[in-house]
Design a protein around this nucleic acid. Structure first.
Lengths: 383, 383
DNA sequence: GACATTTACGAAGGAGTGCTTCATTAGTAG
DNA sequence: CTACTAATGAAGCACTCCTTCGTAAATGTC
């Protein structure tokens, strides 16, 4: 009831315009009649709405469908190409960039390797190179881009400053949004990477369609993100999801079981250690299997805390270790079944390494939608 | 975007009617001009809206305000008396009932003592007596009541069946909503008591105005409820808030520190034991103080798990022990400060024993609002 | 007590939006 | 070539909201 506002006639038209856009986005090219039927409006009204949207550049006509009875109907679709979005995943070891249209369809993707201790100026330069090469790959320029959405590790303030980051030393206190704004002449939004990954899973991954989701980032670094009522939860101070910081949740050090297993040969790089243990467990090695069991023990504590508190529909396991879901999921499920009142679906991520950058694109889409669907922001002219 | 729907002109009128109702409810009697200004509509339009609402019985006229300049303006207000709501708190030891008008203003309140092991038929009879006496006290009959909202202990399914309840033996598996429907000829809604208490705190208690709240029920029995984005979170299977079921959260047995303290005289009833320890701690007894410290240690673990995961604006301490907030809050705050990334406000409940029954009334109001503000349910004629 | 001032009320006219209806048009099927 | 089908385009109607202006009912001033 808080924000319920009265309205003008123009408000009604705006609502109907947005409904039309939303319907077209969701269902590809549609005829006027189909559009009218789906939105509940009459054909003549819908015609006027669509004409206005065409004038504004939000909708375009496509060739009519072949082979029906009667006069072929004109078809319209959302003009996804009227603007573009860039997603960024700024990680410790890689910077990924993706270019997408307004539908969130990814057109190009690039990667720039970096190191956690790469100095800040070099890191920013790498971000610039990643975006530039991505734009070149997609045949676009930065002027075509409406929103850049960046995801990175750490606690990020609502304004896009990095409040705290353990994984990238130079990152803590850095005004990422501010610097990105200087680099790119468009809207900038910044978000925690786990939350972006969760969003991607909810939009197009393992949790598609679920409205209450717990996303667990499992890897050398642990993280969590939650989706409540279809919305990614940020928290009052944008610090939600940091349950791994609590020792009793047994998440922070859980990966040690896999990374310091006694069967790992000396000289194995830390990045490969957990993979070695899991491969051995998959092959039936009893020591490795025991390590996996202990890992699952720890994981189940923090996870069931979240499940008991939130009662989500789905728990999605993402992050580096989710590639080993075949080994990790069964023992985790078994423990959760014991600990939880209502057992949620437990699924592995289906998006892999591009999870965060995909989520960044989805965040940019959502950001745009939010602006579109906010009463005060009328349809901006595009084209 | 999911439920955005196009609309008719009548939809616009409906929207404006609801806006008017909402504004009137929030702000007491208003003149037409004031109402028009607040809703953004023009005076003549608002006049027509108000006239329609008067015809339907949702709004009534009040005597004009005295002592202004110019012609005195008619004043209108929400007709809170056009219907009534009953709230129920069905606990182990007490059944409380409250009668309220549609604004949620409580008109009468009664209590019926029971025992946890009271047989089911007697318990239901006690519920009937509590409601009847409450209605009599308020001078109303059950025909005046639109909604009965009941809160009780346990995990409650969306349909109002009690899925599981440890505190009241006969309760598990009982179809509470179904039986209440047979008893009362009006709408019935059933909800978990902690969630109702949280709602009351958010609507009119310690967390008024906050949209992200963790409510911790502290007492001999522990419970939690969360409010996200202004809405009480139920969870996919209505089992949210049960974090106390996890041993590692250290909530389930935390009260033992207070109830089994060595200084408690033999023969003290279990209901008074914790109070004795706290009173001793308040007086400076070192053994009692140590018990309080250990209690705070345990409480802080589960609480910080919730705070780290959700990053709420406010944590409200409710339940029986919240009367002792002067002793409990300082050590709890101190520990949370160490454990949490962003320290939330930690406050004690301001509603006391009537917390749940008040929340039940607020739930009934919200239920009504929801139906009112749902496009498919047009304004029902009242009066 | 007459008058100005202030504020609210009520009616009239206009603009915008959506709906229904019907003749027209552009295809396919026989 | 004709019949049928489905979309199109234009006309007329209904509803909601807006602006404007004259009227009504109080208070304050001379």
């Amino acid at each position: 009831m808080a924000t319920l506002r009265g309205g003008d006639l123009s408000r009604l038209r705006q609502l109907n315009s947005l409904t039309a856009i939303g319907t077209l986005r969701g269902a590809g090219p549609l005829t006027l009649s189909a559009l009218a039927e789906r939105t509940g409006l009459s054909r003549p009204s819908m015609k006027e709405v669509v004409e206005e949207l065409m004038r504004l550049g939000w909708v375009e006509e496509t060739p009519p469908a072949q082979g029906g009875m009667g006069r072929p109907a004109r078809r319209y679709r959302f003009r996804a190409g009227s603007g573009h979005l860039v997603g960024l995943d700024i990680g410790g070891h890689n910077i990924r960039a993706a270019l997408a249209d307004l539908d969130g369809v990814i057109l190009a993707e690039t990667r720039q390797p970096v190191q956690p201790d790469t100095p800040l100026p070099e890191r920013l330069a790498a971000i610039g190179r990643a975006v530039a090469s991505c734009l070149a790959l997609g045949g676009k320029t930065i002027e075509d881009v409406w929103v850049v959405a960046a995801g990175t590790i750490g606690v990020i303030t609502p304004e896009g400053r990095i409040f705290y980051c353990a994984a990238i030393p130079a990152w803590t206190g850095f005004d990422l949004a501010g610097h990105l704004r200087e680099m790119f002449p468009c809207e900038i939004v910044v978000e925690n990477d786990s939350r972006l990954a969760a969003r991607a899973e909810a939009v197009r991954g393992a949790a598609r369609g679920a409205s209450d989701v717990v996303f667990l980032h499992v890897g050398r670094r642990m993280g969590a993100a939650i989706i409540i009522d279809g919305k990614v939860h940020r928290g009052f101070g944008a610090a939600a999801g940091e349950i791994a910081m609590l020792p009793q949740a047994q998440l922070f050090d859980a990966s040690e079981h896999l990374q310091n297993c006694s069967i790992i040969p000396e000289g194995t790089s830390p990045a490969d250690a957990a993979g070695y243990t899991i491969a051995a467990a998959r092959a039936g090695d009893p020591v490795a299997l025991a390590a996996v069991e202990r890992y699952a023990d720890d994981l189940a504590v923090g996870t069931s805390a979240m499940v008991l508190l939130l009662d989500p529909q789905v728990v999605v396991l993402g992050g580096g270790f989710s590639r080993s879901a075949d080994v990790l999921l069964p023992p985790l499920r078994e423990r959760l079944k014991r600990l939880c009142i209502r057992m949620p679906d437990v699924r592995a991520s289906t998006l892999g390494d591009e999870c965060v950058v995909t989520g960044a694109i989805d965040y940019a889409v959502a950001h745009l939608d939010h602006r579109l669907f906010t009463p005060d922001a009328p349809l901006p002219t595009s084209r």
